[in-house]
Amino acid sequence: MSGSLIFAIAGLSAVGIYMITGRSLSRIVLGFALLGHASVLALLASGGPAGDPPLADRTTATEVANPVPQALALTAIVISFGLTLFLLALARRQQELTGDDLVEDDVEDRRIASQETP
């Protein structure tokens, strides 16, 4: 596993996690996009050293890159793409309803917490 990959995964995760701790859903969406990239890179890196493209008849078994993590990464990319769209739709709806896209506190929790104990 190359140093640059480790560096990229760490950087993307750090920025992604920083962004999803915010209140604004559009920032959170971007944060998840970065985290998603980090996890896909991690999956890719887990397959071992780089090699030739895993196409039949083009290369020998010893020089080919491990295709399994690539298949897993592809599935993960598709899923995270769909979920990003869903989050954006949710942010749009929240903006329609309240004028911003902030993730708010649990209303009932606040109410019970502010009650005086009998």
């Binding site: 998840f32 996890s39 896909v40 999956l43």
Partner: peptide, 14 residues
Amino acid sequence: FASTLFLFGLAFVY
């Protein structure tokens, strides 16, 4: 977030 952690976990396992 839990799903993203799951993906990282899969990478670690693999």
